[in-house]
């Protein structure tokens, strides 16, 4: 209980000294998360339910709008608002899971390479170079062809696509930190490699990790859109923000809302994550926090 209170008061303090952009981003982020989590209850229609009689009806307020379909319907008469909410849910999930997977993989390998050096480092550095050289879409195509367009497969593919950024930065940071006297001081005190990695290196890596996580999250949201756009993503009729844009592009001249709604959501999600990442980075840096 006391721990909870302490956390609450720290959160309150964080709120007090944060800037306007952080507050707006935090509110927007919370709203997005809640809306995504509650999508099945909030959505007025089943997202996959087709109403062919109400095809391509514009959003409320425009000429020819159908009552109940606030953001209009798509070419199969599915409710855009309902699809958008469900798509947001899946897209956020994919981004979160993919970025976490990439971070875990990249952090482990980067730490290992930076600490061990020698052959291990050469191997990891080589793997990073190969990953950079590999066209990602090709990799994704291959994975989808072999394992099928399952949601899990997609998350793993997206996570793997992001590991290299984490590994590269972590490896560089670790090599820089390894030369610092405080690491040498820990060595001289008899600290084990595990202790040095978890107690001395990891806390000093939090700031870059937060920034990279935010970047990676946005990147994965966009990548998923690209893959869905190419038809490699989540199978229809399940909606993701990317697939909605992809399928809506044929109707862009006559029914632009099919594309505008999911595009705006992608924009909002990536923007909020970036803003939160930036302010979190500043907050996690102890030296900036309290002078």
């Amino acid at each position: 209980m006391t721990v909870l209170v302490a956390h609450a008061s720290r959160a309150a303090a964080a709120w007090r000294d944060s800037g306007l952009s952080f507050r707006l981003a935090a509110i927007a982020g919370l709203v997005l998360l809640t809306v995504a989590a509650l999508a099945p209850w909030l959505a007025p229609f089943d997202p996959d339910q087709q109403t062919l009689l109400a095809r391509l009806s514009p959003p409320a307020g425009f000429e020819g709008a159908k009552a109940g379909h606030w953001l209009g319907t798509d070419e199969l008469g599915r409710d855009i608002l309902s699809r958008g909410l469900h798509a947001l849910r899946i897209t956020l999930g994919i981004g979160m899971a993919g970025a976490s997977l990439g971070m875990l993989l990249g952090l482990t390998l980067g730490l290992f390479a930076g600490l061990k050096g020698g052959v291990v480092d050469d191997l990891v550095a080589g793997a990073i170079d190969i990953q950079i050289a590999l066209p990602f879409t090709l990799l994704a195509l291959l994975a989808v062809a072999i394992f099928g367009g399952d949601l899990m497969v997609l998350i793993i593919v997206l996570g793997i696509a992001g590991w290299e950024t984490f590994a590269r930065v972590v490896r560089g940071e670790v090599m820089k930190l390894r030369g610092q006297p405080f690491i040498e001081a820990a060595l001289a005190a008899g600290a084990s490699p595990w202790r040095i990695a978890t107690r001395h290196l990891l806390p000093n890596l939090v700031s870059p990790l937060v920034v990279m996580f935010a970047l990676s999250f946005s990147q994965i949201v966009l990548l998923e859109s690209t893959l869905s756009f190419l038809g490699l993503g989540v199978r229809p009729p399940t909606a993701t923000l990317g697939s909605m844009v992809g399928q809506g592009r044929d109707y862009m001249p006559s029914a632009p809302w099919l594309v505008i709604v999911p595009s705006l959501l992608v924009l909002l999600v990536t923007l909020v994550v970036q803003l939160l990442g930036d302010s979190l980075r500043d907050r996690t840096d102890i030296r900036l926090r309290q002078r």
Partner: peptide, 26 residues
Amino acid sequence: MIFQDPFASLNPRLPAWKLVTEPALI
């Protein structure tokens, strides 16, 4: 060992009480 640059030889992320007792804990 005691190093030349005291700032660089203290982990910036640890509070004083953890810093000074770490060797004893190890």
